[in-house]
Write a protein that binds this DNA or RNA. Structure first.
Lengths: 123, 123
DNA sequence: CAGCATCCCTTAAGATACTG
DNA sequence: CAGTATCTTAAGGGATGCTG
């Protein structure tokens, strides 16, 4: 079979690459998911602990984003049988596989903040 | 000076970590920035090329997000002196430093897509 | 070609109050 | 404690049309 005569300039093979990026972006969509994962990466936490650590998040958003993370298999929710009900959240094994993304964000963000500060001082 | 008497349980030293993550999230905020960076990571591109590669983006969003990236020093805009004006966009040296974040997203997204597909087929 | 101006609309997300 | 329900708002983002 002959090649198409109208060969598009650089049909850009990077598109599958962009699709993959988009997939990750979808999973991490919303204002709080990366922060939730970032804090669960340290250790499992109860609902209230999460709300305290992730500053600014309200109960509605917290539970919504946790549910989405659970649906995608990144987070496990465990109800503990205690006097007042307690619920524990933790990263699943699969959830841990996304840590490199969050770690990359953390380390770039760290150096970026330092850079911005040094620019201000240097001025 | 005495320590505060109400010592909070795990005052969570992970908060600076979360702040850093949030900084990166801010810089990459919006629906298209990671895709723009992802496609510029391959090679510099003209405005129209970007609009073609980043499927679905409109001219308004494209120029808006490019401006924000330029302001943050990740992208350089160059006007070329050609018949009909042409503008070229490329990552700055600093822009390249954020590639690890995008690469991590790309590679996680890739395996995630494969995992999801295999789960569907396996069912 | 590159990109701004305008209008419009959906949706993310906050505040508040209530339940098992 | 761990959420849900409802209301409301701000804003992100799309479509269209125009300009240098």
């Amino acid at each position: 079979m002959a090649k198409k005569e109208t060969i598009e300039k650089t049909p850009v093979d990077c598109i599958p690459h962009l699709k993959a990026i988009q997939d990750t972006q979808d999973i991490l969509s919303g204002k709080w998911k990366v922060l939730i994962i970032g804090s669960l990466a340290f250790s499992k936490k109860r609902y209230m602990e999460l709300q305290r650590v992730v500053e600014g998040i309200g109960p509605k958003m917290l539970s919504k984003e946790l549910q989405e993370l659970e649906i995608n298999g990144l987070v496990r929710r465990t109800v503990l049988e205690s006097k007042p009900v307690t619920v524990e959240y933790e990263l699943t094994a699969y959830g841990h596989t996304i840590k490199p993304v969050i770690d990359a964000m953390a380390s770039w963000g760290k150096q970026h903040r330092e850079k911005v500060i040094s620019e201000i001082k240097g001025k």
